Amino acid sequence: MRQNPSFALTDIGELRRLVDLNPWASLVSHTDEGLVASHYAVLLDDQRDDLTIVGHVGRPDDLIHGLGERELMVIVQGPHGYISPGWYGDVPAVPTWNFVSAHLSGVPELLSTAENLAVLDRLVDRFESRMPRPRPMWQAPNDEAFVERLERGTTGFRLTPSRVVAKRKLSQNRSSEVVETIIAELSGDGPAAQPALAAEMRRALDARRMRGAP
């Protein structure tokens, strides 16, 4: 991802928020056979306050990626959407795409069985907690043997990125008035509506105004 200083996302708190709100990530490795990509949920390491993430892959994806032996890139994709040139007013313009995204790269550490079980437990709780009748990982009819068999079919990892490239492109190069128009279009019921992106742009615009920027 080509970096642009105007859109660079470097604040650790904002990056942690991006990962926390968008746990479904793409894992990319360069292998002897070429590039390979997988898709898994990841979580922030709850023992750290940096950008360390934890997750797992199903076997044999660990071997396919060379997990723990070579660099892994984890791509976290936040809200995104099409921006029509018609939203800029009667000025020369072309379409673009607004988005928030981060690439976290480094050589991951493989987790022990106990650590992997703890991560799997956290993952289940993270998403089951929203269900009307949550089913924790250890709840019957799951028993210890079933959970242990499940764990053996996965490989857990912890990644503390040695390289981070993150971008938040939310029309920061446009006036507040134009950004308001874009937010209204994205919040509506038109063909390009993206409420999550509109909310992210609103948050960025409010922060911009608090700084006194036009």
Rank of each mutant, 00 (worst) to 15 (best):
P95W: 05
T96M: 09
T96E: 05
T96Q: 09
N98W: 04
N98I: 01
N98R: 02
V100G: 06
V100S: 12
A102C: 10
H103L: 06
H103S: 08
L104G: 04
S105Y: 12
G106C: 01
P108T: 06
P108R: 10
E109M: 07
E109K: 09
S112R: 04
S112K: 02
S112D: 08
T113L: 05
A114M: 06
A114C: 03
E115P: 06
E115I: 01
N116V: 04
L117P: 00
L117V: 02
R122C: 07
R122V: 03
L123E: 07
F127A: 09
E128Y: 05
S129F: 02
S129N: 14
M131G: 00
M131D: 04
M131F: 10
P134H: 08
R135I: 08
R135K: 12
P136R: 09
P136L: 08
M137P: 01
W138L: 10
P141L: 12
P141R: 07
N142A: 14
D143M: 10
E144L: 14
E144S: 14
A145V: 14
A145S: 13
L150G: 06
E151Q: 15
R152S: 15
G153T: 05
G153F: 11
T154N: 13
T154S: 14
T155S: 15
T155V: 15
R158S: 13
R158A: 10
P161E: 09
P161R: 05
S162M: 02
R163V: 00
R163S: 10
V164D: 06
K167N: 14
R168L: 03
R168S: 12
L170W: 01
L170Y: 03
L170M: 08
S171F: 03
Q172L: 07
R174M: 07
R174S: 08
E177H: 02
E180W: 00
T181H: 11
I182K: 10
I183G: 06
S187C: 05
D189V: 08
D189S: 13
G190V: 06
P191D: 15
A192I: 00
A198D: 02
E200H: 01
M201S: 02
R203E: 11
R203Y: 02
A204G: 03
